[in-house]
Simulated assay, not measured.
Amino acid sequence: MNKIVKYILIGVLVLGALWAAVFFVKSNSKSAITYETSQPFISSIEKKTVATGKVIPEDEIEIKPQISGIIEKIHLEEGAKVKAGDLIATIKVVPNEQSLNQAAGRVRNAELALNNAKIEYDRNKVLFDKGVISSQDFNNLKLTYDQASQELKNAQADYQIIRKGSAGGSASANTNIRATVAGTILEIPVKEGDQVIQSNNFNDGTTIASIADLGKMIFEGKVDEGEVGKLKVGTPLKISLGAVEGVELDAKLKFIAPKGVEETGAVQFKIEGDVEGKDDVFIRAGYSANASIVLEKKDSILVIPEAVLQFDKKTDKPYVEIAVGSTEEQKFERRDIETGISDGVNVEIISGLTKEDKVKHWNKTEPIKKGDEETETE
């Protein structure tokens, strides 16, 4: 009985060894890879970079009041097109009691001074007509009377300005906020009832509205310090808008910042470019945009696909493998080359290859069977 068990165990071990050998042979048997080849060809390469930014008006004007008060009426809405002089809003003046009392007191003092000057003027005019006083003395009295009359007018005008915001309620009154330039109203950051502060030497004042000409737009973006040195004023740009698909606008670089700003560990330089608008495309202020900039361009140069490049592990210099003999023999030799600019797809060949060379595609995919389906892995 023991012998039978022993023979069974030996048979199981032999069968197991045979199965393992067959599995090992099958799993390690790979079909031969046939590498493809391609020849260098003549083409053009553009090395580009992309600057992110936005499209904004070239000039944006903020309209501020010349007098403090409360917004009584807003006559226009955001998006309205205006001409210089168009009425945007009206301000209701809320006078300061102390200033109002002082102005009223000044008016009263001017009236008293004028009454006194008139009495002296009338009395001396009679004497002058009789030849009692000289013309010089009479002229001095007349000058005093005229000055008192003018002072009263000035005091009354100041009082009206403090109380109502204007001396006579004319169309040019400070309470009427008007557009100073032609364009489109981009924003009205106040509403009726808001209190506003006048613009003066000590305060910028409250912005009533911002106006810009949307026909004159610029691209404002930033580029990395590694690329800013390759830019030149006048370089053409291609602007693509995030909000308008399939539209590409032409622009021309007009400004490169002399100083960079560090952002998230990288130094960025501000650039600006004049955007050429299109009649069928309405550009709104603040659209996010990308500017494609050609840093370097070469025409009619010898190139190969960048994917066929290999790099030496020690020197990190590029090389390719060249087919020797017929393609069917699949024999290759190493060839060191010198490369130029690249656009990420093709790379310029400066030396080391000719148009007749056949370059090996070393990263050929290998078919592997999975069940009844055949897939490819790198």
Rank of each mutant, 00 (worst) to 15 (best):
G105V: 10
K130I: 08
V22A: 10
K47A: 10
N124L: 15
L241D: 01
P236Q: 08
I70M: 14
A285M: 06
G325Y: 06
G215K: 10
L152A: 07
T180C: 02
N203T: 12
N346K: 14
T52Q: 13
V228P: 06
Q98D: 12
I4S: 05
K331H: 12
K164N: 15
Q66M: 10
R123K: 10
S149P: 01
A117Q: 01
L237W: 01
P40C: 04
N154K: 12
I301N: 03
F202A: 15
S149N: 07
L302P: 03
F24Q: 06
I218A: 05
I45R: 00
A113W: 05
A251T: 00
T264S: 14
N115F: 04
I256N: 01
S166H: 04
I61K: 08
K278I: 11
T144C: 00
Q39E: 11
K364Q: 15
A148I: 12
D122C: 04
I341M: 04
L87P: 00
E62L: 12
G215M: 07
T180N: 13
D312R: 03
N28V: 09
Y121T: 06
Y145K: 05
S27Q: 08
E245K: 11
M1W: 09
E328K: 15
K331F: 03
M1H: 12
V55T: 09
H75N: 14
D357H: 12
E151V: 03
I304R: 07
S149K: 14
K314G: 04
E97D: 15
V275N: 01
I45D: 03
E374S: 05
D122E: 15
W19G: 15
A323Q: 10
G325Q: 03
I42K: 11
V93W: 05
Q39R: 14
E366K: 10
G273A: 13
K47D: 07
N203K: 05
V320C: 02
G352A: 04
D336R: 00
A104D: 04
P65T: 02
V228N: 10
G221A: 13
K259F: 05
T49S: 02
Q268A: 09
P57Y: 05
T184R: 06
D146A: 11
L76C: 02
D59Y: 14
G260W: 06
V107H: 06
K370H: 06
T52G: 05
P318K: 08
F255A: 05
P95I: 07
V324K: 13
R108W: 02
